[in-house]
Amino acid sequence: MPPTGVSLNDPREALFAAAERVLVRDGGVALTSRAVTEEGGVAKGVLHKYFSDFDTFLAELIISRTAYVATIADELARTAGRNEVEENLAAAMSRLFETPAIQYIKIAIARDEVRKHLVALGQERLPILLQAVAAVSSYIGAEQRAGRIRRDANPAAVAPMLVGALHLLATDEPTAATDYARVRELVVEAIRR
């Protein structure tokens, strides 16, 4: 039985970290409030002390873990004008769907209440995907202005196509979306058109 008197410096972060460990090890199907509190080594009531319900917890977990997309977007933006366009995009995009990111996306898609909580918290329903589309679109636009991508390419169309293709790939075969060579093939096809 987990201890009930464990002192947590940052209880919310400790619960998020426990949830992430469960996701990475066992997948989204295993992610329950009981699994999170057991993994965190805390009493069952601790989660509900900080979150009104499990769907709120999941929505806040997703929000807390989407900061990495902004980091990837910043790194991608700094590569504009340097190296090969395909190389820059493939390197950034192959990091977008690393575990547990694809699990967060699956949770947001599968759980209506989580999406409602995301919106109530001022977020998009699928923040990781939409942030990724914005980052890729911005990068493609920057490369267009630098003359490295065709002027008639439409960043607003290419970006969701690339992110969507990767999402489908990751959903079907999670490691494929992080495979640089496979991601580069998608990028080459998308920006060549």
Rank of each mutant, 00 (worst) to 15 (best):
M1P: 00
M1Y: 00
P2E: 08
P3V: 13
G5I: 13
N9Q: 15
E13W: 03
L15Y: 05
L15V: 07
A17Y: 02
G27W: 01
G28S: 08
G28C: 01
T32S: 07
A35I: 08
A43D: 11
K44D: 14
G45N: 12
V46R: 12
K49P: 00
Y50M: 10
S52V: 15
D53C: 12
D53I: 13
F54G: 04
T56L: 13
L58D: 03
S64C: 04
R65Y: 05
A67H: 11
A67T: 15
I72D: 01
D74F: 06
E75Q: 11
L76E: 02
A80W: 03
R82I: 11
V85Q: 04
E86F: 01
A91L: 07
S94P: 06
E98R: 15
E98F: 05
T99E: 13
I102T: 02
I102F: 04
K106F: 09
K106P: 00
I107G: 03
A108H: 02
R111S: 03
H117Y: 14
Q123A: 15
R125A: 14
R125M: 11
P127Q: 02
V133F: 11
A135M: 12
A142C: 07
A142P: 00
Q144C: 05
R148L: 12
R150A: 13
P160I: 06
P160F: 03
L162H: 03
V163R: 08
A165H: 07
H167R: 12
H167M: 06
H167I: 01
D172V: 03
E173Q: 09
E173D: 14
A177F: 06
R193V: 13
